[in-house]
Amino acid sequence: MSRAETAVRTPSPLWTFGLLRSELATTFRRWRTLALLGVLAAVPVLVGVAVRIETGDGSSPAHGGGGDGPAFIAQITNNGLFLVFTALAATLPFFLPMAVGVIAGDAIAGEANTGTLRYLLVAPAGRTRLLLAKYATTMVFCLVATLVVAVSALTVGALLFPLGDLTTISGTRIGFAEGLGRALLIALVVAASLTGLAALGLFVSTLTNSGIAAMATTVGLLITVQILDQIPQLHAIQPYLFSHYWLSFADLMREPVHWDGLVKNLQLQTLYAAVFGSAAWARFTAKDITA
């Protein structure tokens, strides 16, 4: 492996896109991925139909308990667009991150498990590039999964409930077009909220050769963190848990938008992505690939 040879073999930048494209195609053609997306698409349908049946006689949704249901659920009957926010609020604590955990955990360990990792490394892309392609694929999945929930919710909301101008949670009114814009922005923020977990899952995935173990560990970590975030005595560490600011996406529905929580969330996700992304790189580039 002389220098000259390495120079000749330096892959062209196009290689990265080729690798990414093939990764994306492999991931999104899997039945497992499609099933996950199907489950995610079903959640808004369930919520929408449930709210519709509950309020069929014209009463407002039973929401006397205060804070029991997902956010925004009280407004769905008046404006179907709110189903997008409710669906995202309902799936963000568990369904979405679980799907991301499965994809991220499977990224490296799954290949190692089926014995295809070494063949991937045969391609003159290098480990760093492969890892980047895997992470990019996972992030694309975050975005696609979020959009699937949002689009499904918007469709169901439009079919079952009226659409129109909406009232922000600050009590001011915005037009439907701006509401749609905010819904899209919220979907992007939710997708970005998952990038920290995606990096964590990728790191876990480099630690083991068993895809199932990596997925289970990632989802297990997710559940643990969600529980820790609920314990009041641990308030000192909670601002550093990746899920702590997840629901801050609702701040986009304030008028004017309250940025504090949103900014903190994005900073925290960047931090998690940087720490666990570089840890995954440190592990993966120095690892003996035996399978």
């Binding site: 492996m1 391609a123 003159p124 290098g126 940087a274 570089s278 790189w281 580039t285």
Partner: peptide, 28 residues
């Protein structure tokens, strides 16, 4: 092994590979 530029050096020089591997964790 030719395309595998990242670990090539580590495999050639086994003695230092452990240290090199550990050094990468400096980043996170």
């Amino acid at each position: 092994y030719e395309s595998d530029d990242s670990t090539g050096a580590g495999q050639v020089d086994g003695k230092h590979s452990g240290r090199r591997r550990a050094a990468r964790y400096v980043v996170p």
